[in-house]
Design a protein around this nucleic acid. Sequence first.
DNA 1: GCTACGTTTAACAAGATAGTTAAATGAAAA
DNA 2: TTTTCATTTAACTATCTTGTTAAACGTAGC
Lengths: 128, 128
Amino acid sequence: MSRTDQLSAVFAALADPTRRAILAELANGDATVTELTAPLPISMPAVSRHLKALEEASLISRVRSGKWRASHLEAAPLRDAADWIERYRRFWDESLDRLEAHLADVQSNQSTAAAPDAATTPTHDKEN
Amino acid sequence: MSRTDQLSAVFAALADPTRRAILAELANGDATVTELTAPLPISMPAVSRHLKALEEASLISRVRSGKWRASHLEAAPLRDAADWIERYRRFWDESLDRLEAHLADVQSNQSTAAAPDAATTPTHDKEN
DNA sequence: GCTACGTTTAACAAGATAGTTAAATGAAAA
DNA sequence: TTTTCATTTAACTATCTTGTTAAACGTAGC
């Protein structure tokens, strides 16, 4: 299939943890390749190419200012990605409802169970 | 980098238009590989492998029922993807605010312009 | 046990991706 | 103009992805 569409490019860009880390860093303000490379375990050319990928997905823009070239977060394409995913919200909300209903049922049926609340609060880890 | 984490797997799965089409189809109900292949321009083995990718990202589950094996949408991982993207909402909302402010400014400055509303309503195409 | 049907796996090829080091580019500073 | 510094591109390698066709697998029905 096409695979050259905007949405595919954005999701593909987000599929790499290094690129997500770069976007997270840029959320704190513009930065140069050198600055972005510092905390990462890969070479500067590798980061430079990640930036190229992000730029081609329109997730960043870059502007040269003297010797430096700063990368700037461009979040607009994330809106399209969010919108696409949002159409499935009812499915995960639904599932959650069913899960909660089930757990509530289990809980009411075993009246003497200890600390049932632990199970009713699914963990939800965050990543950079 | 790792690239084997759950979030990366989900975004990578969503980066392919064929797989997004499959998820969209499954939103209408469970389906077999044969059914999913019918509208697609690729072979059944190719679709079968897309399903494998979706299953490994935990975006679908599959159950054999006699001769058939139905795929079922599992939307829960989409919640994590949505949550990740949501943290950037302020950036695109911000941009939108600036755009709207700019357009309002332009509009008020050219009092006799025709149909200015067309420009204040950015188009926002949806995809399958 | 055969046969048929739905599905997956194997084997292959083409192209994309992600990293490396070394060389080239572009702009500032001396 | 030569040097220096920030960054990108080139060349290469290894691995992953996505498609194909042909073969294998699993279950149902005769």
